[in-house]
Amino acid sequence: MKSVITWFRNNRVLVSWLIPVIVLVVAIAFPYFIMKPKFWVPNIGIKTIWLGISAMSLTFLNRYLGLLSLAQVAVSAMSAYGIASAMVTFGLDWYIAIPIGLAVGTLLAAIIAIISIRTVAIYFLMITLAISQVIYSWVSQEVFVNGRRGLAPVRRPEFLLEMNNFYFFALAIAVFAYLACRYVASTPFGLSLEGIKDSPDRMRALGYSVSKYRFWAITFAGFIASLAGIIMVFDRAQADPDIVSLNSTLDVLIVAVLGGVTSIGGVFLGGLVFTLLDNFASDFTDRSMTLTGVIFVLILLFAPKGLTGVWEQLKGVFKKPSSSGAAKDLKTIAKEAVDTSSAKTKGKNQ
């Protein structure tokens, strides 16, 4: 027993990868152990993945920049529109369309960054909300993207027609997005971001160009959100204004809050709970939106780190006050593993 604990203690980096790897293994096995893969793979699996990636770009900004952006869905949607226009309007192939979509989404994120760079906190939240509403109103009217009718059909490329292939394609993008976020966070750039988040004035005094860092962080998050757009557009087979509506924006926000607004990996748990609620809540209640709202509020009141943070709270409940030092270390290790340890509780509240 003791040797196991020592091993954990000596291999923290390894351990911090343990849970993501377990989740990945379960995700790979997922299509093979469910009863109705034709339904579960697209409606739960693939949708969880793209909601999760879009939410990940939101939690990344919140965790490393302290900014809550409501424009991430608009970025995903513009990437989806980029792909849809390339394929439907111009008849281009998917391997040309995807880079176009990523470029459109990332470019939009850069523009959003330029517009919003001077705002923080609640102002940033509202300006990004306004930007996403501008985009919604614009695509609803714009003839080039076929207004409210939207662009359809966006057919999946040949090699993705098989649903499982598409699922693993989506999963590969999710893994890439996750690794990219963790990699960026571990670079000097990522560490400076956290410094800026905690005390922008001090970092400014140290000679950091805070605006420049913010710009690149928002643009990077935009790239992540654009990745979600690829999966979304092929999953939905169309790009229409609904994907950038207020409801879609709030859906991703709910996913982020359920998973934990400071957790990079928790978004997939949030996405899973959300898609399950979305598909099955109506089977046992007429007021599924009220149910979602109540869960949302309860989580914010009692588990601000989301469902992934509940694990920590559980340990807080069962941990005996007289636990040994070794157990305490285990706790620290597990904390890192659930990917929430370094995120300081947002509020200085009590």
Partner: peptide
């Protein structure tokens, strides 16, 4: 402030 914004958003859903 962000948590209050989110909590009240949940109230709005309901």
């Amino acid at each position: 402030d962000l948590r209050v914004a989110l909590i009240t958003l949940g109230v709005a859903f309901i």
